[in-house]
Write a protein that binds this DNA or RNA. Structure first.
Length: 909
RNA sequence: GGGCGGUUAGCUCAGCGGUAGAGCAUCUCGUUUACACCGAGAGGGUCGGGGGUUCGAUCCCCUCACCGCCCACCA
């Protein structure tokens, strides 16, 4: 016997294990089955499952299970990402906390990496196990890691080939430098944030005490009317410490105020150097003083100006962001942290009387997305990928629709970024990651090869003799290996059968936060190395945001932990909620109540199955959905077909919320609320043929529901599949390997549909207009149909047609005598008992009727106005006018009915 | 400064040319009934403001306001 509620905790682990043991997650070997492949966005090994992962993987699993049920050969490729900075950070923190007084440097590179690997082996699998709890049906036997052997070989090959093609090169230019991790990072890893800062106005004195006339007042026409004599040029900066590295002061060539002094020199205070005043298009004459200090080595804009004017570049800081030990840095600043140096510079400028003023100002400042420290533009040697070149085919593929982005609007974002893409800095001064396969000779010549041996051979050829080589110390950006994920996980560079079968992959499911980081780069690498797009479709889902800073007041830090939610409500409830909320829009805010609601939905389904079992509705494998003769059965078969068509279409269109909603409505509002109620008389009746047909239909529909719901709620459906097989015919296999219903439209029986529609309307109307019945105060109203007195009889007459239909549906209890609290009437010779419900509060009913009448009358007035508008009647489609007329007459009839009921109530004692 | 999105019931959100929807919450009534993780009802909305197109606009167009996100070099 099925118990009254579903117990996810007991059931979920059992099925997870059974599925995996049966190999249900492996692609089917059927050569005729069409391939369907999704590569998982590899979570960081350091990660633990958050609600965003839960959403992302639920959607993937829905698609994967859906396509598997549709008979495709499905591969969902799992794995994890080594996450360079994040992982190194975790292990370094662990070292710091261990109290052993060790850090990365004291351990040395080799030993440190050993520790990281140990950590990875111990903890790296956590998140994949958490995904298993969610029910993710990845082919776990194919789990990959971005730093495992095969994927590392792919990275080597890609790097070397791109280098040979000139698409990877080493360059000295300004790069975003993270002084905390002491590494370069890419543009994407920089977050610009607005912070409260200052704008310091300095005076740089002209050489030899020279002066010029500077306009300080203008007339209406913009001509200067007043001048003052100046012996300095005013500049402003948000970063005073960089002034030590200034190479010039720039003004706009059209700026007349400074025209007299362009080409002259100013004294750079503190540094005691003279720097030129140059003319360049870059300064905006209307901003600040119109003059800009040019610090080529510490600002991206200034760098361009400095290069254009061939200005010297002064690198002011070391890798930790401390003032460098360099000849051009005055001794007193050397070794100071950049923020300390800033204070000191300002104080010293002030002491010289050269600080004009200080302004408070909101400024945009770059922060490292991991370290959260201020990023420093630094002049260093780094490896770059020529992204501009690789982007071209990647742009074209989306333009031409070879890869489709869903929802389409994200295409714009993709194009905008791809069309303005900058060289991608791929080297990182870290230890954890793929080491850059470059070796340097004594003269600095570089040899990029897949192994040290190959590099040595190349060097021998180059030098004509054996020379010692020094390997590159740096590692690659984590996203470099992630960019290869769709083909490296399938075995590339080997020519594996999986690669042949599953590349290009079918769909990529991801959040928009990694559109640039990952999706764009997979497109570039996939097209370059495979000559084909990595995936046919990119589905971009919303981000789940924690309601931090939002109205949900009571919260402190209300991030929702999916594992806790699974413990509390079950994986199915969480999955269904996420899918139901995954409308193709923006962000999702999740409420726990919603999950509770969908947990209840699971219970509802569970109890429908319980009902089926109690009524011996056993599965019959010979069941033909065309066979039923009873109206309700013909009707529900049609409804099932409609539901199946809707769910299929919505899933194909990736409207997960619509698919989930269609299932929810069908199960709860159609199958449970109406069908199971309608068949009770049949199941309790005498007609054995009808009874058997109804039982089989009930079981068949339930089966269809279980299959269709399985992608969303795999555990409860699999469990019910097994349970319902216990009392009927034995199941041949597990639900996960069943077949998706394909039910054609000709199963929809319009006559049955019409009859049921009438039934439903009858019942609804009887309920809602009960006040129309003439009943004494305090009397009870029969819920279904019948009242007492003349009005009730009039009603019976009015609904005779419908009652006939009901009779044909055998919607009668056949009770001999009515139980207490019910009324009876005779229908087609059978005595029908109906329960009595509801006490009528007459004054309240009268008030409500008054209100309804007023509302309807107003509406009728509006409709009359419209119908008498000749323009409307002339222009509107005929059916619209006709509909309005009908509506008007319906409303008028309603008013009459209501008025009659009102008068009856008023007449009552 | 560009670009994108949002503003719909008390809350969280769907819908997006043809009589305003869901879940939760609220109120009323109901458990010998598959399910109280339930059932039957009810209340609750000038679909952010203002213009326009249309026979008809929550939906399309323009504009304003507020909120959010992404990109960007204003020192």
């Amino acid at each position: 016997m099925i118990e009254t509620t579903f117990n996810p905790k007991a059931v979920e682990p059992r099925w997870s294990e059974a599925w995996e043991r049966a190999g249900a997650f492996k692609p089917s070997a059927d050569p005729k089955a069409a391939p369907f492949c999704i590569v998982i966005p590899p979570p960081n090994v350091t990660g633990s499952l958050h609600i965003g992962h839960a959403l992302n993987n639920t959607l993937q699993d829905v698609l994967v299970r859906f396509e598997r049920l549709r008979g495709k050969s499905v591969l969902w490729q799992p794995g994890t990402d080594h996450a360079g900075i994040a992982t190194q950070m975790v292990v370094e923190r662990q070292l710091a906390q261990s109290g052993a007084n060790e850090d990365r440097r004291t351990l040395g590179r080799e030993e440190f990496l050993k520790r990281v690997w140990t950590w990875k082996e111990q903890s790296g699998g956590t998140i994949l196990n958490q995904l298993r709890r969610l029910g993710a049906s990845c082919d776990w036997s194919r789990e990959r890691f971005t730093m495992d052997e095969g994927l590392s070989a792919a990275v080597l090959k890609v790097f070397v080939q791109l280098h040979k093609e000139g698409l990877i090169y080493k360059d000295k230019r300004l790069v975003n430098w993270d002084p905390h991790f002491e590494t370069a990072i890419s543009d994407l890893e920089v977050e610009n944030k607005e912070v409260q800062g200052h704008f310091w106005h300095f005076k740089y004195p002209l050489e030899n005490g020279e002066t010029y006339q500077f306009p300080i007042a203008y007339d209406d026409a913009g001509a200067p009317t007043e001048w003052e004599t100046r012996d300095y040029i005013a500049i402003a900066t948000t970063r005073p410490e960089t002034m030590l590295g200034d190479g010039a002061v720039a003004v706009h060539p059209s700026d007349k105020r400074y025209a007299p002094i362009v080409g002259k020199r100013v004294l750079l205070p503190l540094a005691d150097r003279y720097i030129p005043i140059i003319a360049d298009e870059y300064p905006d004459p209307d901003f600040g003083s119109g003059a800009v200090k040019i610090t080529g080595a510490h600002d991206f804009n200034d760098y361009k100006v400095a290069r254009a004017h061939d200005l010297p570049l002064y690198v002011l800081m070391d890798t930790k962001g401390r003032m460098a030990d360099a000849a051009y840095v005055p001794a007193k600043y050397r070794g100071l942290d950049r923020f300390e140096a800033r204070k000191q510079v300002v104080a010293d400028i002030d002491a010289l009387g050269l600080l004009e003023r200080v302004e408070n100002k909101k400024i945009m400042q770059p922060f490292g997305d991991r370290s959260n420290v201020v990023i420093e533009p630094m002049l260093t040697d780094q490896w770059y990928v020529n992204a501009g070149e690789l982007a071209k085919p990647a742009i074209k593929a989306v333009e031409e629709g070879t890869t489709k982005i869903v929802p389409e609007s994200w295409g714009k974002t993709y194009f905008q970024w791809m069309r303005n893409i900058e060289p991608w800095c791929v080297s990182r001064q870290l230890w954890w990651g793929h080491r850059i396969p470059a070796w340097y000779g004594p003269d600095g010549a570089v040899f990029v090869e897949e192994s040290e041996g190959a590099a040595k051979r190349a060097a021998r050829e180059h030098y004509g003799k054996e020379e010692p080589l020094r390997g590159d110390e740096d590692v690659l950006d984590t996203w470099f290996s992630s960019a290869l994920w769709p083909f490296s996980t399938l075995g590339w560079p080997e020519k594996t059968p999986e690669l042949k079968k599953f590349y290009p992959t079918s769909t990529l499911v991801t959040g928009h936060d990694i559109l640039f980081f990952w999706v764009a780069r997979m497109m570039m690498m996939g097209l370059h190395f495979m000559k084909q797009v990595p995936f046919r479709e990119v589905y971009i889902h919303a981000l789940v945001r924690d309601a931090k800073g939002q109205k949900m007041s009571k919260s402190k830090g209300n991030t929702m932990d999916p594992l806790e939610l699974i413990d509390k409500y079950g994986a199915d409830a969480l999955r269904f909620t996420l899918a139901a909320m995954a409308a193709q829009g923006r962000d999702i805010k999740l409420s726990e109540q919603r999950i509770e609601g969908y947990r209840n939905f699971g219970t509802k389904l569970w109890n429908a199955a319980r009902f089926a079992q109690m009524n011996e509705c056993a599965v019959w494998d010979q069941y033909d959905p065309r066979s039923p003769e009873q109206t309700v059965n013909r009707w529900i078969v049609g409804e099932t077909a409609k539901a199946a068509q809707a769910v299929t279409a919505e899933l194909e269109a990736r409207r997960f919320n619509e698919a989930a909603g269609a299932l929810y409505k069908f199960v709860w509002n159609v199958y449970c609320d109406w069908y199971l109620e309608f068949i009770k008389p049949l199941l309790n009746g005498e007609d054995e043929t009808a009874k058997l047909e109804t039982r089989r239909t009930t079981a068949w529909v339930l089966d269809q529901i279980l299959v269709m719901l399985h992608p969303f709620m795999p555990f409860i459906t699999e469990e019910l599949w097994a349970r319902t097989g216990e009392y009927g015919q034995k199941r041949q296999g597990m639900l996960i390997s069943e077949s998706w219903p394909s039910l054609s439209s000709d199963l929809i029986d319009e006559d049955a549909e019409a009859e049921i529609e009438w039934m439903v309307r009858l019942i609804a109307e009887t309920r809602s207009t009960r006040s129309e019945l003439n009943v004494p105060p305090g009397a009870k109203i029969p819920m279904l149909l019948i009242g007492a007195g003349e009005a009730a009889e009039a009603r019976l007459e009015r609904y005779q047609d419908l009652i006939d239909r009901m009779a044909r549906l055998e919607y009668s209890t056949g009770a001999e005598s009515a139980p207490a609290g019910s009324v009876t009437f005779v229908l087609d010779g059978a005595t029908v008992a109906l329960p009595l419900e509801g006490v009528v509060d007459l004054p309240a009913e009268a008030a409500r009727l008054d209100k309804d009448i007023a509302k309807l009358t107003a509406e009728i007035g509006k409709m009359d106005a419209k119908l008498s508008n000749t323009e409307f009647v002339a222009k509107a489609p005929e059916e619209v006018v006709e509909e309005l007329r009908e509506r008007r007459s319906d409303a008028a009839a309603s008013v009459a009915k209501l008025a009659a009921a009102l008068s009856q109530i008023k007449a009552a004692p």
